[in-house]
């Protein structure tokens, strides 16, 4: 391949070097996303940042108030800390569980069994359906007297909780519900599992490694970049949890499921405090950024790339 491209370079009337030509190709290919990002994401992000220093209700001109929105957020908004707390509990409950479940299912789906393609499809299927219909479906599942959740628990002699009507169980209920969508992460894990070279397992077996040791010393390290990816994606998505809560509980009972984005949404589109909502959005962005940076900082210790450990040659 390389040889052929070099031949083309010589023919080029612009006399561009290979790297220059590749650079042009790169920017051409990425331009649809780049333009979209600049016009529809970066611009509004900057606008939102500036608006976060104003009081703004859309119909009256924004009023510059410096850090007033941030002061309200940290000192007087009675629901800000509640929303933050609920969201943190959700994130730290759901991300490890979903990651573990996705990996576990991916390991099962990686078995060379007849009909395994069927099961892979079945386990991925729920991820295709999302949003409102799923929320409505889970309303039924969690129904305290009728739902399948409490029926299953009753089979083993447990009287199920009130789920969505219980301040303690509402967040666990939402976390369990999130398992519905592990298909995406599972698929990424599965692809990575298939990419682990057989010879590593063979070598480990020759060294006398059992199934668990192989998993610990071959599978996990080889999967670590994908675990890293799924972890960061999971955290970003979990902090933005919204639809299920919006449809199923509206933040209730007693604000026990008032997630951050619902609080933000209400301020923006129910009370039309756009400036304050923008401040909330930027604070959430910072929270996610800091946590993501911490994970990246920690990654050299546990993420292995082929021939590299945490980005360093070994």
């Amino acid at each position: 391949m390389r040889v052929e491209t070099r031949v083309q370079v010589k023919r080029s009337f612009l006399r561009l070097s290979l790297t220059q030509r590749e650079a042009i190709a790169f920017y051409l290919f990425i331009s649809p996303w780049l333009l979209g990002f600049l016009l529809f994401t970066l611009g509004p992000m900057i606008a939102a940042f500036l608006l976060s220093f104003t009081f703004y209700d859309v119909i009256s001109p924004p009023r510059w108030v410096w850090f007033e929105n941030y002061r309200i957020m940290f000192t007087t908004d009675p629901l800000f800390w509640q929303a933050l707390k609920v969201t943190f509990i959700y994130v730290f409950g759901s991300v490890p569980l979903h990651l573990g479940a996705a990996l576990f299912v991916a390991l099962l789906m990686n078995q060379p069994l007849p009909g395994i393609y069927f099961f892979r499809t079945v386990y991925y299927l729920p991820s295709i359906i999302g949003g409102v219909p799923v929320a409505l479906l889970w309303l039924w599942i969690y129904n305290p007297s009728f739902g399948i959740a409490n029926w299953l628990l009753s089979l083993v002699g447990i009287k199920g909780p009130q789920w969505l009507f219980d301040e303690f169980w509402i967040i666990p209920a939402l976390i369990i519900m999130g398992l519905w969508g592990i298909g995406g992460a599972m698929l990424v894990f599965l692809a990575a599992l298939q990419g682990i070279p057989r010879h590593l397992y063979e070598a480990a077996q020759l060294d006398g490694a059992g199934v668990l040791a192989q998993f610990r010393h071959v599978t996990l390290p080889m999967l670590s970049p994908v675990i890293f990816f799924n972890l960061v994606m999971g955290i970003i998505h979990s902090f933005q949890v919204f639809t299920n809560v919006f449809i199923m509980t509206q933040g209730g009972p007693a604000n026990a499921s008032l997630v951050y984005v619902l609080h933000l949404y209400r301020n923006a589109f129910s009370y039309f405090k756009m400036g304050y909502a923008a401040a909330l959005a930027w604070f959430l962005f910072l929270v996610i950024l800091v946590i993501t940076l911490l994970i990246i900082k920690s990654s050299p210790a546990w993420v292995y790339y082929e021939g590299m450990r945490g980005g360093r040659q070994t």
Partner: peptide, 16 residues
């Protein structure tokens, strides 16, 4: 990861 992180903030700004 970068692509996943940005839409929320942008949505907030777009309302204006």
């Amino acid at each position: 990861i970068l692509m996943a992180a940005t839409p929320l903030l942008a949505a907030c700004g777009q309302a204006a």
